[in-house]
Amino acid sequence: MDTALFEFCLRMGDNTLVLGHRVSEWCGHAPVLEEDIALANTALDLIGQTQFWLGLAGEVEGKGRDADTLAFRRDAWDFRSVLLVEQPNGDFGQTMMRQFLFDAWQSLMLDRLKDSSDVRVKAIAEKASKEVAYHLDRSRDTVVGLGDGTAESHSRMQAALDKLYPYVGELFGADEIDAEIAERGIAPLPADLRGAYDALIADIMAEATLTIPDSRWTHTGGRDGTRHSEHLGHMLTEMQWLQRAYPDARW
């Protein structure tokens, strides 16, 4: 089995699975109808991307597991999502800050994956990058709008940034899998995206009148599955309950 490619697909697909789930939790509860509808669109895109990435992971693995089996029958330690996307929604500001910090990374990553040496990866990236360009547009505007809004919205957005920034570094982690995938021309080294990412974040946070924390220190453990957040287990308890309670059922 092509372990490196399998792991890479899980890293991409588990991020979108977990974040798509988080964003879908807003449905029916957003601050205004227009935002409710927009968030659902984002979640729908992420769920669609999950089907592609996990579908490809299953294909690469070659053991007959499809996207649903991978999504609903793995335990937390086999997930490869970054800790950032596992973080709970918090208030709307925290959700949009998390979204922006992820969108910025995902859009840079997908742009590079459009040149992937693997045609399947390239095809997913071509479709997904258009969706993510819009997500980024929207989350960026919202972060700027709320950062530069009222005193209350500003302080909530600063709190969200302070809380979430220590999870950003994990997106740029590097291990043997990253090295092999980069070596084979499937994806860039995550660390190579950091410069462009920092520049983008700096621009937007300046516009939003928000201050990026000085420390680059980062939590890790999600993308390699060594130490996920406690939140992930709770999410899976809810997400996988039906499939595990009735394993013989077809839905």
Binding site: E34, I37, A38, N41, Y134, D137, D141
Partner: peptide
């Protein structure tokens, strides 16, 4: 924002 909302709605 109206244009973005229109796109989504």
């Amino acid at each position: 924002m109206a244009i973005k909302n229109a796109r989504d709605v």
